[in-house]
Write a protein that binds this DNA or RNA. Sequence first.
DNA 1: CGAATATACGGAGCAGTGTTCCGATTGGCA
DNA 2: TGCCAATCGGAACACTGCTCCGTATATTCG
Lengths: 196, 196
Amino acid sequence: MGAGEEAMSATANPAKRADARRNEKALLDAAASVFVTDGVDAPVRRIAAEAGVGMGTIYRHFPTRADLVVAVYRHQVEACAEAGPALLATATSPFAAMGQWVSLFVDFLVTKHGLAAAMRDDPDGFAALHALFLDRLVPVLADILSAARDAAEVTADVTAYQLLRAIGDICAGAERVDPEYDARLTVRLLLEGCRR
Amino acid sequence: MGAGEEAMSATANPAKRADARRNEKALLDAAASVFVTDGVDAPVRRIAAEAGVGMGTIYRHFPTRADLVVAVYRHQVEACAEAGPALLATATSPFAAMGQWVSLFVDFLVTKHGLAAAMRDDPDGFAALHALFLDRLVPVLADILSAARDAAEVTADVTAYQLLRAIGDICAGAERVDPEYDARLTVRLLLEGCRR
DNA sequence: CGAATATACGGAGCAGTGTTCCGATTGGCA
DNA sequence: TGCCAATCGGAACACTGCTCCGTATATTCG
């Protein structure tokens, strides 16, 4: 998978020129800021303007929008992944750990306007982000799931990928606010369905 | 709710001029055809071209894309709604009826490229379609759900709307083909979670 | 310190959307 | 038949994502 190197090329690199590094930083800050207010689908021009750079600059540093998104959210995904083993060790049961970890994942998704939806709608463009999720999050959930299965708390024949993506889709649909609808309840019912 | 009248204005109306009625029919046929191949997000120009009319004509008959979509799919939604009571009467149990009806609904959604996703992504634009679902489908599922509850087959505290929307979101996410992911399995797990 | 060179920058420009607007056309009626 | 209002067609505008290349500048070397 080249996804790792791709995104890596957009991180701090001492071999670059000083202004290039400066602009990259400015773009990351601007993108993070704009993503919060306008969502990850914000116009490229707006991000460039916010960073005070031209169109060419943004595309040179981040050839695709996904590269920018990955760079902005990478450490948060990392934190979510690292929380998995810890929860498994401290929770009262593997199923409880699963519930807590999933809750963490849902938190991450719902606070990023349109992230889940964008990934769903443009899987090719966001292949790098998709790969990041697959590489870091699926194994974590797989471990928890397997522990829950060993404890006979989960019997449903479902894979970690299937579960993670289902949760992603549910959150993608819940990014629009609606007091009548509660994505967390849906996710809870889904987990309950796995328990059986 | 003005949604009903809105969409109604786009159905056959004998008071219109002959060419207007002819063009409306041509647009409906063209849209139905294009939706199948290009999805409900197909460019407006393409639909107009397929129908052999100009841009102005399509916007006069169907001010919003949702009006066109509603007109095209209205009878299919109707059929899905009417199947509810029948299933409830013939199925071995209310929960079984729920499973069968939901399967019908999933069938409807997954065969319309991007329908669920479009509704999810542009809830305001597709308000008329949303209203159609609320008016026709939610009550049907509510009846089945209440029957299942009476039979003590469902104990989860979930509304028909919540359930219907969750299924819609899951299908919206599954419209992209992926052999690893099975939306129907997710939906089955969700229903299982309601059973408890 | 002052060129020379590779690196990076900026934004005009292209292509593809949705949507509006108004002059041209045509159906239906007197 | 002739007229008028209803209807049509598509040019035009605003907004996207993305590319391309002349210009500017950081870095290096003499």
